[in-house]
Amino acid sequence: MTAPVREEPCWAPDASPEDRPHRATTGASSGRVTGGLTADVAVVGAGLAGLSTAYHLIERDPSLDVVVVDARHPAAGASGRGTGLLGPRVGPSIDRAARRYGPSMARDMYLASVTAVERVVALTEELGAPCGLRGGGQIVATRTASGLASLARQARTYQALGLDVPVLSAADIRERLDVPYHAGLFHRSAGTLDPAALSGALAAACAAKGVRFHDDSPLRGLRPGDGGTPTELLFPSGTLRARKAVLAVNAAAGPLGLPVGTVLP
């Protein structure tokens, strides 16, 4: 007999509605989207991407009316269940990125990912988030022939682009970790943290700055605006019209008919 699948986050159990950070701190959640609501900026998705967007928007312009809406509640999705690995690299491997986008863009993408790690570290300090942040390097290692070939291609590209990603031999890896890998690449900027705790701290900080929250409101559709017309977001119990909308919905993009991994005006 198969055991039932547990849906609680690995970091901590789902908080009760009353104890969720954005409610417990300020009582900022107004429940589901009901009726016809308006906002300057609507952020759909209360994971790390959506919450950090709302946080930086309200930090930059406190006069904005920012609303964050989630199908369940902050950190209910991947941001409350992730591995907690904080490291550089984005998109395809560096050699593929250089072929696909050109060497200059590939280099800029990698450097932007390194900067992103540094900004997350700074953000946890700014928020005073108790998320167990531990800094350190990250080793991408292999012990297969195909893996060695792939790492060799990446190493050549990193070197050609002037990026500081050293190659580690088997002996170099064993000095750091007693594991039987043949070679690796060492990324200096990395760490681990509790993503659920960071998400909770972001939600509480947003609420304290006046960001409004609506939980238990899955997005069902949208009518994009066109310049002077606001975008209208459709929910089961109401609508939300906003001058700008940020859809940070991750895996929910497909069912909504939205292009996955794409930024649109």
Rank of each mutant, 00 (worst) to 15 (best):
V120K: 13
V120Q: 11
V120S: 12
V120H: 13
V120C: 11
V120L: 15
V121N: 00
V121A: 11
V121Y: 03
A122W: 09
A122C: 09
A122P: 10
A122Q: 15
L123G: 01
L123E: 00
T124K: 04
T124R: 09
T124D: 01
T124S: 06
T124N: 00
E125N: 12
E126T: 10
E126I: 06
E126S: 14
L127N: 05
L127Q: 09
G128L: 01
G128K: 04
G128Y: 02
G128M: 04
G128D: 07
G128T: 08
A129I: 08
A129T: 12
A129W: 14
P130L: 06
P130Y: 08
C131Y: 01
C131M: 02
C131I: 00
C131R: 02
G132S: 05
G132F: 04
G132Q: 00
G132M: 00
L133K: 12
L133G: 11
L133M: 09
L133C: 07
L133F: 14
R134S: 13
R134M: 09
R134H: 07
R134G: 06
R134L: 09
R134N: 03
G135K: 12
G136M: 03
G136P: 01
G136I: 01
G137C: 07
G137F: 06
G137Q: 04
Q138V: 05
Q138C: 13
I139W: 05
I139R: 06
I139Q: 12
I139V: 14
T142D: 08
T142A: 15
R143G: 07
G147T: 10
G147H: 15
G147W: 10
G147L: 09
G147E: 12
G147A: 12
G147D: 08
G147Q: 10
G147I: 10
L148I: 03
L148Q: 12
L148M: 14
A149I: 03
A149H: 13
S150D: 10
S150K: 05
S150A: 13
L151V: 07
L151F: 13
L151R: 11
L151W: 01
A152D: 14
A152Q: 11
R153P: 00
R153K: 13
R153H: 05
R153F: 09
Q154W: 02
A155Q: 14
A155C: 06
A155Y: 12
A155R: 12
R156H: 06
R156F: 00
R156T: 09
R156P: 04
R156A: 13
T157Y: 03
T157C: 15
T157P: 13
Y158N: 00
Y158R: 00
Y158G: 03
Q159W: 07
Q159G: 14
Q159S: 15
Q159F: 09
Q159K: 15
Q159R: 15
A160N: 05
A160H: 08
G162C: 01
G162S: 07
G162I: 02
G162M: 03
G162H: 04
L163P: 04
L163N: 04
L163Q: 03
L163Y: 11
D164V: 07
D164Q: 11
D164F: 01
D164P: 10
D164N: 10
V165W: 07
V165G: 15
V165H: 11
V165K: 13
P166H: 07
P166T: 02
P166N: 06
P166C: 11
V167Q: 11
V167C: 09
V167S: 13
